[in-house]
Write a protein that binds this DNA or RNA. Structure first.
Lengths: 343, 343
DNA sequence: TTCTCTACTGTGAACGCTCACAGAAGCATG
DNA sequence: CATGCTTCTGTGAGCGTTCACAGTAGAGAA
């Protein structure tokens, strides 16, 4: 522990100082730092002691200069900003990725691309090699940033299956269709027969898949698809509220509703309560995500849990593998029905 | 525009390539890159053309190696993770800081310190000089990370006035006391006389100041402070809900309540509605923050706007100034009363 | 002319690390 | 004994910049 006087930062120790302290050469210290292969136990020990004594920390810039790697990765969000502000799922994902990367001692650079200008700046930054890879959150199809990055050969893993990109892009996603099936089956098992749905945006795979699951289960139960029972939203709370109003107007006899995200489900609950419907007595409500919003709702939301911790961990794992030279991979993770008060 | 075959990344152009292309020396290119002083217009032009032609982007690692700066800054959050997940204010702040830094071409490294282990790792990372400065979000007093960083001479600017750190730490904050005064005056102006308060945590300056403003205005209106009308929360939604229940039990005649954060106010609204109180007819509710949560509430919350965009911009400005050698500074920004449906 | 001053330009030497290579030592094999 | 192999170690080169310094050219003053 070295104390600094008056807040001044002193020149930090270099690998050279450690080598001198340990009585070995720079090369040996470097080998210890990078895994310790081909180093005698004695040297190993001496170097580690010297590192502790000097408080040495590797200079990442010097390392990067020669290795060509930056040992940092970018977390790129190309979603519209209002969703970033309102949807706690991003925070859960962001934290998960940060932690998973921290275990590899890799810092996460946050990149928010809202405007066209920001997109350009960020694309330029990434393709310049300032990060080794990118964790991408962009549910909408045909994201130009993603295509550019992919074209430039930047390792990339998306959260959720990207539409319109070649098959050569990695992604990690929950099993949306299966989750939707579980939820709708659950609603039917409660005896509900007029089950509505507020879908997500239908230019996203999640939106499409969850709707597909809903339709499948209705068909398998021998129920006819009533178009008045289906409206679409955009994952915002407000769109859930508007969607519920539309549903109630089109199909006043609705006795359950499957909402494609918890945030929209919050809006649905608010609209139902305003219209005097009791939840779950009059209308059962099922959400999707198991985001913190589900627990914050009154009544607490029955929902489909996306395994966020596993999703972020897998995203990082797949990305690092790809940086290491492996081929792109797709990972689909199972979901789980979480029963709470709203059904 | 260079096209890459088969996704392979080719060796990027260096300053040397640019120099050769422009017919000048490395030094001249470097000067153009760093402000263009002492460079003839002709050379300037030639270099810029060469940069465009080659698609050159500076190698930040090489630059950092010699300048000793990393040209990146850290955004450090030492709040408990549940608040990060649930409070949209963080996202607003995070986005604001990211954008303000982007204007200076400085990437933001996200650092989340939840566990003791993470704290140590992050402290080590920062003090090793891997970032030039830190934007700190840590409302609680006596944060050991902050003290360590300050002791190590790391440029630091906090969001909100830190308690217990020496006066030599920069911070940017909204005028909490004045905002609280405005809100309570507003509630009194509506004719309410039994005005309760749900405070923030009282080991934070924001929590203390907002309570102080409340007390001041009661005193100036000649109202006696009734301790049954004051309960404290921790900024979470759940604590707002619990607080409101306690208030209603202790002081059933309460006709208004000032809640120290919008998120807690959401909880208060839920509790009031459950207890059958109409808002604002029976009880007027005022929040604090003007976070996205205020607009998402039903009814929409009257609240005190914290100028988040200015706060983040000032944090970045003060931090960069400090990195540039200036003394620590404190910035207090004015708040604004935003009237909506809940009062 | 000669000197000085200003505006500009080029060059070598770092920055701290990794990597390739050469070499040394120890030990078994031919 | 020479030869090979394995394990370990030191050394020089170089990654792509910036910085200090030296040097050049042109303008103006003595």
């Amino acid at each position: 522990m070295t104390m600094n006087a008056a807040g001044g930062r002193r020149r930090p120790p270099t690998i050279h100082d450690v080598a001198r302290e340990a009585g070995v050469s720079r090369g040996t210290v470097s080998r210890v730092l990078n895994g310790g292969h081909y180093v005698s136990p004695a040297a190993q020990e001496a170097v580690n002691a010297a590192i502790r004594k000097t408080g040495y920390v590797v200079n990442r810039h010097a390392r990067s200069l020669i290795t060509g790697r930056s040992d940092s990765i970018g977390f790129l969000l190309t979603e519209p900003q209002e969703r970033f502000f309102e949807d706690p799922n991003f925070n859960v994902l962001l934290r998960g990725c940060t932690q998973a990367l921290a275990a590899h001692d890799i810092p996460l650079l946050l990149m928010l691309a809202g405007t066209e200008d920001e997109r350009r700046r960020i694309t330029r930054y990434i393709t310049a090699g300032h990060v080794d890879g990118v964790l991408l959150v962009s549910s909408h199809s045909g994201d130009p940033v993603a295509e550019q990055l992919r074209g430039a050969g930047v390792p990339l893993v998306a959260c959720g299956k990207p539409i319109g990109l070649g098959s050569k892009v990695s992604y990690v996603a929950a099993d949306d269709r299966d989750g939707a099936r579980d939820m709708v089956r659950h609603l039917l098992s409660l005896g509900r027969r007029r089950v509505g749905m507020v879908t997500g945006p239908l230019d996203t795979p999640g939106g499409v898949e969850r709707l597909a699951g809903y339709k499948e289960v209705l068909a398998e139960a021998g129920l006819e698809l009533d178009e008045r029972l289906v409206v679409s939203g955009d994952y915002t709370r407000a769109s859930g509220e508007a969607g519920a109003e539309r549903l109630l107007a089109q199909a006043p006899d609705m006795d359950a509703v499957f909402v494609a995200s918890d945030l929209m489900a919050q809006g649905v609950l608010a609209a139902l309560q305003r219209e005097g419907r009791r939840v779950p007595e009059d209308v059962a409500v099922g959400g999707f995500d198991d985001s913190p919003a589900a627990l914050a709702s009154r009544p607490e939301l029955t929902t489909i849990r996306q395994p966020w911790d596993r999703i972020s961990a897998e995203m990082v794992r797949v990305l690092l593998a790809q940086i290491g030279g492996e081929d792109p991979a797709a990972v689909i993770l199972p979901t789980e029905l979480v029963k709470r008060e709203s059904t």
